[in-house]
């Protein structure tokens, strides 16, 4: 129980990853798959951020008193978020094209339209 409380943020991070994976694999709608992917990535981002967190520490500014929160994860995740956003943009662009061609976003229906490979 104590573990649960002290590692609460980690649990949230992994919960998000779980939800994301589930949506990504389980849902037939392509847009929702992309949303699932985003949720999954958010879980990872959260994991990074909390890993740098120190109880009672101040932000990593030289004017603030030590101990500092580790700044590196923040930097990394800023980059990762940018990557994530561009991925989402590309995937949504693809989805628009898929919708134009097949007229649906349901994976099963698309497979039906194409005939199976």
């Amino acid at each position: 129980m104590d573990l649960l409380v002290s590692r609460f943020h980690y649990l949230v991070a992994f919960f998000l990853m779980g939800v994301g994976t589930f949506v990504m694999i389980g849902d037939r709608n392509l847009v929702k798959k992309v949303i699932g992917l985003n949720v999954f990535q958010t879980g990872i981002f959260l994991f990074f951020i909390v890993s740098g967190y120190v109880e009672g520490a101040s932000p990593p500014l030289l004017t603030a008193p030590s101990p500092y929160v580790s700044p590196v994860p923040h930097v990394l995740i800023l980059t990762a978020i940018v990557v994530g956003v561009s991925l989402t943009a590309v995937s949504l662009g693809l989805i628009v094209r898929i919708y134009r061609v097949y007229g649906t976003l349901d994976e099963a229906l698309i497979r039906e339209v194409r005939g199976d490979e």
Partner: peptide
């Protein structure tokens, strides 16, 4: 410019990003 390409790319994107 086929629909198949876009679909393959999206599938690739999902798995690859994962």
């Amino acid at each position: 410019d086929r629909g198949e390409s876009a679909l393959a790319a999206l599938k690739y994107l999902l798995v690859g990003t994962f």
